[in-house]
């Protein structure tokens, strides 16, 4: 390490004297004992974090039947509004009448059982909300703690020497950040310390994680897709749901129906003209 310091100091002296970019000779051992270990630790920590987030993710929870019925009736109304054009007038009107009546009456609103007219539970004491907030906090911690630890590790063990030369030039503003711990005022900004490799890795490792753990992220994506409707329903209160149902009933009552089978022959003929 002492030799390295000599090389470094002489290199910087040459740079200062010549006033031009000088080539430093770095100890090749730096690659094997600093560059590779930092890279390996960053990749392994990233993979571990992804596995960890899968482990601490909340599992799929069961819902009471009334909640499901409520959600499904609302979904049914939305689907009728969105895809109603695929059925004929008669079918549409039948569904429209039934859903408008049912939703306006609030028949399927899931009301929590209250004892002797007691007030409904505070939404902030709801276990579902608390669980969701807790899992969010855990997720944040799982990504924040490893980053802090690695940064401390790099700063503590690999500070005070030049690790590598960047293949692209940088402005002088980066000098303080990328050459932290290297006390050479005239050294070119392209010669950087270990902490800059850490920053480059943090910014550029996303594609590597995607390639290494693509199966996991696919699973997570599909899990998220299945969980989202339940999560949003968990937050809603009966009063809110009732007003949503009433507005849906209004929408359905005034919905204009236009069947896709009207003039279908003309459209098909137009397509093949």
């Amino acid at each position: 390490m002492l030799d390295l310091w000599n090389v470094l100091l002489s290199g910087s002296a040459i740079t200062a004297a010549a006033g031009a970019v000088a080539e430093l000779t770095l100890d090749p051992q730096l690659k094997y004992w600093v560059l590779l270990p930092i890279s390996a630790v960053m990749i392994l920590t990233g993979i571990l974090r992804q596995q960890d987030s899968t482990l601490i993710a909340p599992g799929v929870k069961g819902q009471p039947r009334v909640k499901l019925t409520e959600a499904q009736y609302m979904m049914k109304a939305q689907i009728l509004l969105g895809n109603g054009s695929n059925i004929n007038d008669e079918s549409f009107n039948q569904r429209k009448e039934y859903l408008a009546k049912t939703l306006a009456s609030g028949k399927y609103v899931a009301r929590p059982k209250t004892e002797n007219g007691k007030e409904a539970a505070n939404p902030f004491n709801d276990p579902g909300t608390a669980d969701a907030m807790m899992s969010m906090a855990k997720g944040n911690m799982a990504s924040f703690i490893p980053q802090t630890i690695i940064m401390w590790w790099v700063n503590h063990f690999f500070a005070g020497f030049v690790l590598m030369k960047l293949p692209f030039p940088l402005t002088l503003r980066f000098k303080e950040m990328l050459q932290s711990g290297v006390m050479t005022a005239d050294l070119d900004v392209r010669w950087v310390s270990a902490i800059s490799w850490y920053f480059i890795s943090v910014l550029g490792l996303n594609p590597v994680f995607n390639l290494l753990t693509s199966e996991n992220t696919d699973n997570q994506l599909s899990m998220m897709q299945t969980q989202t409707p339940q999560g949003s329903e968990m937050m809603s209160q009966p009063a809110q749901v009732e007003s949503q149902m009433k507005s849906l009933a209004n929408d359905i009552t005034i919905a204009q129906h236009e069947c896709c089978f009207d003039n279908v022959e003309t459209r098909v003929l137009n397509m093949y003209k």
Partner: peptide
């Protein structure tokens, strides 16, 4: 960012 990381790594 991925390209810069891979470039810097193999360059060094």
């Amino acid at each position: 960012m991925g390209f810069i990381m891979a470039w810097t790594f193999s360059f060094a």
